[in-house]
Design a protein around this nucleic acid. Structure first.
Length: 491
RNA sequence: CGGGGUGUAGCGCAGUCCGGUUAGCGCACCUGGUUUGGGACCAGGGGGCCGCAGGUUCGAAUCCUGCCACCCCGACCA
């Protein structure tokens, strides 16, 4: 366990990777581009799953599971979709191995070539719509509101723990509706749900918006997203919700009979968030001492560290620690009493700070004598001595305060790092200096968007939903614009 | 696929130019002791096909040839 975490000012991305490893969350696998999520990292994913899953169920969605393999012909049915994913697919071509003739090991048996190649799903629209065709006949079968927790594979050229890996875990919702209005409503309902979750559970403020034509999902009519700002001033797409129109219904011939007996194609949506959220969580909140976790997602809420020399002292401390543990657990929190005698208290303090445990309680002989404990909060690193009798009652409100403080801090940061600019010169200057989100006028054309991207590496993150109407001139072309859009360099 | 780089203990590295004791250092690990209110210290110890294959040589981590793997910068990234 190293002491030094690279200061973010020098190389944020290195600092991030160090932290992921030191907090024991994940590591690069020996398998190309893949990641091993370690127990501590996975437990955060489980918290995310639990939180989101409840919200999905509360809005009428149900879970199901579809195949990992997508026949090539399925993927090819929607033109834009296949084009968008073609360049990053893993493909299964054979189903058997055999011993090499020359004894050099095991080789792919050329006799065992598949008639039709199988694609390891990069997303499941096609397999799922293939099922929907069989499931939907009438308006009575609608809406169909299904979610799946799964892994997907996208053969990325360059990977980064949590943010972009060849294989990742996610949830993907796929719904079918009788009308466009209903499907659009669903798309926005999920967008709000995502924003609610990311802000209130993860403590990361987001901007809801619509993607430009160039950035939208292949096969979608409209793509909506939530965009978060990381501490180095780069943006992270934290979740997307797509209005698919009738594109997939037409590609898979999913028609339903309406009340009037007429056949029509159903209207679809799809939406997802992935383990990338964990990367965003780390980059939005951590400091040079390590991770800072929002209490609502922390696998451990309170850690109790005993400070002792002798077995007798430990026994006395343990008794107090047990009392606190039982009472705090009763309130629904996870408490860990770290009574290991193999590590010194200082080591433990540093370790739990690295892992982002929100509240730490230290109890030593001095406290036993005075009837007190030392309580420390991770977000501000503030420490205070409190009466033993008062600790338990203080914890729920303290955790609540930490949750709010983390969010407010990130929100203040984003506010400070969001700049309105009116000229291209200013735009470039902000990008290279202050960074962050930039609100600027854009003429709405793909050419301008592409030119700005090529010249500055900044992309249009979204057209914010709450952007007020405002007459202006495009910073690049000078053509008229009706509202500002959100630019940033992104992960 | 282009440009650059690196493969030596679990991790991070030195040694390679200029071949020559038993291949070294830090962290981690093991044993013993002293410690314990912010990442302890001392002493001792274990752990290596020096990426793989071939070649040159009395002798190769070091030189030569070939191969492999990984990393970084691009291209790519709903």
């Amino acid at each position: 366990m190293g002491k030094e975490i690279t200061p973010r000012s020098e190389d944020y991305s290195q600092w991030y990777l160090d932290l992921v490893k030191k907090a024991d969350m994940a590591e690069n696998s020996d398998v190309r581009g893949c990641m091993v999520i370690k127990p501590y990292g996975y437990s955060i994913w489980e918290s995310i799953q639990q939180g989101l899953d409840k919200m999905f169920k509360d809005t009428g969605h149900v879970n199901a599971y579809f195949p990992l393999f997508v026949p090539k012909s399925f993927l090819a049915k929607e033109a834009a979709h296949v084009e968008g994913f073609a360049k990053e697919c893993a493909i299964v071509t054979h189903y058997r191995l055999k011993n090499a003739e020359d004894g050099s090991g095991v080789v792919v048996d050329p006799e065992a070539k598949l008639e039709e190649e199988l694609i390891v799903r990069p997303t499941s629209e096609t397999v799922i719509w293939n099922s929907y065709k069989k499931w939907i006949q009438s308006y009575r079968d609608l809406p169909l509101l299904i979610n799946q927790w799964a892994n997907v594979v996208r053969w990325e050229m360059r990977t980064r723990l949590f943010l972009r890996t060849s294989e990742f875990l996610w949830q993907e919702g796929h719904t079918a509706h009788a009308t466009a209005q209903e499907a659009e409503k669903e798309t926005l309902l999920i967008l709000d749900l995502y924003a609610d979750f990311v802000e209130n559970f993860m403590g990361v403020p987001v901007i809801k918006g619509k993607k430009s034509e160039g950035e939208k999902f292949p096969g979608a009519v409209d793509t909506y997203c939530i965009e978060a700002l990381m501490q180095d001033g780069k943006a992270l797409q934290a979740g997307t919700s797509h209005f698919l129109g009738q594109n997939f219904a037409k590609a898979f011939d999913v028609q339903f009979a309406g009340k009037d007996g007429k056949l029509d194609y159903v209207w679809g949506t799809s939406w997802g968030v992935s383990t990338r959220l964990i990367g965003g969580l780390i980059m939005a909140h951590s400091d040079d001492d390590g991770l800072i976790l929002p209490p609502k997602l922390a696998p451990i809420h309170v850690v109790i560290v005993p400070i002792f020399k002798t077995a007798e002292e430990l026994a006395k401390i343990s008794e107090k620690a047990e009392q606190i543990s039982i009472a705090v657990r009763k309130k629904g929190f996870v408490v860990k009493f770290d009574n290991r005698d193999t590590h010194k208290p200082g080591f433990k303090f540093a370790e739990y700070e690295l892992k982002g445990v929100p509240v730490r309680i230290a109890i030593g002989p001095r406290d036993i004598q005075n009837g007190t404990v030392e309580m420390a909060r991770r977000d501000t690193k503030e420490k205070k001595t409190v009466q033993f009798d008062e600790v338990v009652d203080m914890i729920p409100s303290l955790l609540d305060e930490i949750q709010k403080n983390i969010f407010n801090r990130a929100l203040a940061f984003r506010k400070e790092k969001t700049t309105k600019v009116d000229t291209y010169e200013e735009f470039k200057k902000v990008l290279d200096g202050k960074a962050g989100f930039i609100l600027a006028h854009w003429d709405g054309s793909a050419e301008t968007e592409g030119a700005i991207k090529d010249e500055t590496k900044a992309t249009i993150r979204c057209i914010p939903l709450d952007a007020p109407e405002e007459e202006g001139k495009c910073i690049y072309s000078g053509k008229p614009s009706k509202r500002r859009v959100l630019f940033a360099r992104a992960y």
